[in-house]
């Protein structure tokens, strides 16, 4: 049975696509056959973050409208085995996504033996975002330690529990995970940023991981190489931990305490 995992947030620019790229890569590296789907029709970017932008021929709308087969549209990732990308359409109208069409694609992927289907949601709560979460079994709610992001995440949690297929059919609810991104422990220390505990208390969702604010994220998107592939980067390691937790492993949270600015660490520069 394929596991449908939506990466969502409500607010834009918090790291949904970065997270979708990292988590799907991590799942594939763990041996899970994984597809990652861009639901942001009209503003596709997952292809760019995954580094497959020059190999896009067909997209999800072509598949829904019967202009291409699913296998023609799926792009196999060259660096990561078991990983496939289904891009969004850049030109078609976003109404081209239909509930039935998306359902058929997910079913075909499940029949092809995919273990995980990661749905990269667009920002907002419009059609694309609703369809990305509709069939979900699990949800990662990406949240920045910032008031508007936390509020939007709470709104999204409400939608996840009321407007999904599982909710409509009175099945067990979507398993929700909180992923905090762009976390700056030193700013939390000085009282100018919401802490992990604050956010957990407000949103009351199990914590999947904390991704620190990191230069590596911009470098990764510049290069078109999911940040999780950067094994030396703090953000890459934090995503690897999150994937391990998603797969049931227990791992302690890292990168949540301010770095000790000791005399020595200042002397020797970078930690």
């Amino acid at each position: 049975m394929a596991n449908v995992l939506v990466v969502t947030s409500g607010k834009g620019g918090v790291g949904k696509t970065t997270t979708s790229a990292a988590i799907s890569s991590g799942l594939a590296m763990a041996g899970k056959k994984t597809a990652v789907i861009d639901f942001d029709v009209g503003l596709r970017n997952l292809d760019l973050i995954m580094g497959v932008e020059r190999r896009v021929v067909y997209d999800i709308v072509n598949v829904i409208q019967g202009e291409a087969s699913l296998n023609q549209a799926l792009i196999r990732h060259k660096e990561v085995d078991n990983l496939y990308v289904l891009p969004a359409s850049q030109t078609k109208d976003k109404d081209a996504l239909t509930t039935e069409g998306v359902g058929e694609i997910l079913e075909s992927l499940a029949n092809e033996g995919f273990d995980y289907i990661v749905c990269d949601s667009p920002a907002g709560i419009e059609r694309g975002a609703q369809l990305a979460m509709y069939y979900a079994d699990e949800a990662i709610v990406v949240t920045n330690p910032e008031v508007s992001s936390v509020r939007d995440s709470d709104r999204m949690l409400g939608i996840l529990s009321s407007k999904s297929k599982r909710a409509e059919n009175n099945e067990s609810p979507i398993r929700e995970h909180l992923l905090i991104t762009r976390y700056a422990p030193d700013r939390v220390g000085t009282g100018e940023m919401l802490s992990v505990e604050d956010m957990q208390e407000i949103l009351a969702v199990p914590l999947l991981g904390v991704i620190p604010e990191s230069n590596a994220v911009l470098q990764a998107s510049n290069a078109g190489r999911p940040v999780i592939l950067d094994k030396n980067a703090d953000a890459g390691q934090a995503y690897a931990d999150a994937v391990a937790r998603l797969l049931g492993e227990e791992r302690e949270m890292r990168f949540i305490d301010a770095k000790g600015k000791s005399f020595l660490s200042r002397l020797f520069g970078r930690s």
Partner: peptide, 27 residues
């Protein structure tokens, strides 16, 4: 000690708790 003006996180938390409780009730 952190300067008072820096301790805006506690203000953020309080505002969010009130707002979200209200929005959940309305939902």
């Amino acid at each position: 000690r952190p300067r008072a003006q820096d301790n805006s996180a506690s203000v953020a938390k309080e505002r969010l708790q009130i707002l979200i409780a209200h929005e959940r009730a309305r939902g």
